[in-house]
Nucleic acid binder design. Structure first.
Lengths: 219, 219, 219, 219
DNA sequence: CATGAATGAGGGTTCATTCAT
DNA sequence: AATGAATGAACCCTCATTCAT
């Protein structure tokens, strides 16, 4: 509207960035960060390669934007998990979304690509780590809130271990789920249920023990 | 000495292949499969780019060789885990090796790279899957052998779920361990111990239930 | 202007393809198909090497385009020969054009290059053969039309032999003419005239014999 | 035998050069001068690439040696033609040899390769021209010797035209014969016979005319 | 704002040639 | 004399990026 030298925040500009990012996501999905070319992305977005550079300074910038979006999707997935009635079902839904390639959800091949990239680019590593920390905190808070025994989480080491485990399991399952598209969803559910049951059993057990006497940490 | 039309198996040739593969491993580690150039690898190996093609027909062949070696390392790691006195300790050792970047052990950034590549290249996918199946079978057999209750593993679904879970956890932990080099090894141990304890508790529980009456499957 | 997904047929694109092909022709002339590099061609065309690949998918494609053009020139030359008042003069003009290196005419060094290439590449061989067949048919038809005795061409073997001979002579003379730039055009004319005279004498002779009695083939 | 710093003329050395040249000939035949590599030639010769450089200073030198050999074969072919009872049959034999790929005979694909190379490399051009001149002279002398009318050849222009024509026809037929391996040998013979008959008829005619009165040049 | 032609550095690969053994 | 490992320049081709229109 206004004669705005900074065009970056016009509604149109936002829409264009959106188009580019969605196209990039699809291309990266199909061919990886390095395999997808700007020309591919431009074609997928239905625009010219040159135009992309009006909205992003470089391919690397697109990659970083995609990474941030995916991490943001991860956070959103967390919210959904937290608000789901059934915790297990929530995680399964999340994993299913990973497999789906849907735009609004973290996606396993991209997750691999991102993780790999993070091992090389310190800036990406920092971004990923930051997102990780945020998720970890949310998760911790959620677990504390719903825990049968608050005590369990008073020991930060124990709490961290549980969260580390939970996140590793989810990621590990998600990667396998993506690597093997034939993997039976029921098997996934079965494995995850068992795992969560284990966590809860542990919690219960700990709660019982805690009730018996004040504080006896048994590793 | 011998009238050897194929130079590929002389001692020197083997040593050169080794030099190249080790250089490639380091380069792939630093820059990824696509980011590392033949020139990089040649430089790292202290030889000219052309020479590499005396020992490998293409860069892709080097990548595949690296992948196979890593998968082989994975299998070796499994053997070590199986033969370790303490199962948990065995896995922790394995994960520690992943982090070390040592040539003889599976290595987490490469694992990510491989998984990402398998998403796109069907041949690599097949290789990875094959290795996976082999490990799964070994693991299954090992778990059956040491199980307190053989019955538990008679239900293939249940057995598969346990293995899926175990492998996912190990991989998930390994990736996190590699992504965050500051991650406290003790925390890792704590998480893994808890997980294994959960698995064993489940087994025990199941054995008890099985003893109560002949066969009551409770998912 | 138009919503044209294929840029290949815009006026500019055609002009560029033309520029490239003409540059390629000159380079191939100077250094042969294999001796001329894409960089040479790009330099000759006054453009960057990369740009060439916007208009041709590979060097091989350029070679094939050049070959097709040359064969097309051969067909055009044939038309000119057929429409020339004097057959001998028409052929001499054609040969002179071969020597000129002009873009619109078949050119002897390229003809050699093409023939040599056809020896190895079956696809090129097929293209050349196809063009050859076409020329042969045209020539046959022209000779039949202007023949003093139609009977002569009723024996396909005899007709084919005459055409084979004619084409071989023209090509042979053209190659020599190109190999030895000092070769006197008058000598060329003299030789060719004699040859054509021989052909016509044969025809006449045959016609006379045929008139004597119905059919006496004397090889 | 002797401690000979110039090893170039040892019997062994000659044998080695022979081996290399024959291998080179086969490789050049299959893949052309540029398509055949030193490694190919070494392999075909059953020796190491390095050894080749003990007997030839460069690939170019091998090419030149091959060219000289082929030209020499051309000269030998000429001798055979001259000594054949039937001139036509002699030429047909020669052409058949061109097609055969036999070591001792000029060979059509190589002839193409050589002619093409001669248009670029002045040194090769000179060699070829030299050989050509030699053949021309021999042919001239032979034709004069066997001519029914010596007078015909007293006009050098007329003589040169006949020779130019003859050589062009032979080369032209040879190239076509090599380009189209399916070409019927009988057709070849038919065409050539007709051509030679034409030459002889011309000669006869000229002799008759010459007899009529002393000297009346008609074209 | 948008295009897509143009650039040129750099990638994988080949191969004539050299040289230590 | 002979090997074949090693070199490095040059090849074909791709693609991130720029810029005239």
């Amino acid at each position: 509207m206004m004669n705005d030298p900074e065009h970056a925040f016009t509604e149109r500009a936002l829409k264009q960035r959106e188009r580019i990012l969605e196209a990039a996501r699809l291309c990266f999905l199909k061919r990886g960060f390095h395999g997808a070319s700007i020309a591919d992305i431009a074609h997928e977005a239905g625009m010219s390669p040159g135009l992309i550079y009006r909205y992003f300074p470089s391919k690397q910038a697109i990659i970083k934007a995609i990474i941030e979006r995916q991490l943001e999707s991860g956070r959103r997935a967390l919210e959904e998990i937290k608000s789901a009635e059934d915790f297990v079902q929530g995680i399964l839904n999340a994993i299913e979304h990973w497999r789906s390639g849907c735009a609004n959800h973290m996606n396993a091949p991209l997750f691999l690509e991102i993780s790999a990239e993070a091992t090389r680019d310190p800036e990406i590593a920092a971004t990923v780590e930051e997102a990780d920390r945020l998720i970890k905190n949310h998760l911790l808070e959620a677990m504390q809130r719903t825990a049968r025994s608050k005590v369990l989480y008073q020991d930060p080491r124990r709490a961290n271990a549980r969260i580390l485990l939970l996140m590793s399991v989810v990621e590990g399952l998600a990667i396998r789920a993506c690597r093997d598209p034939q993997l039976d969803p029921d098997l996934l559910r079965c494995a995850l249920t068992k795992f969560i049951a284990g966590l809860q059993a542990d919690e219960r057990e700990y709660a019982a023990a805690a009730q018996a006497h004040s504080s006896c940490t048994k590793t």
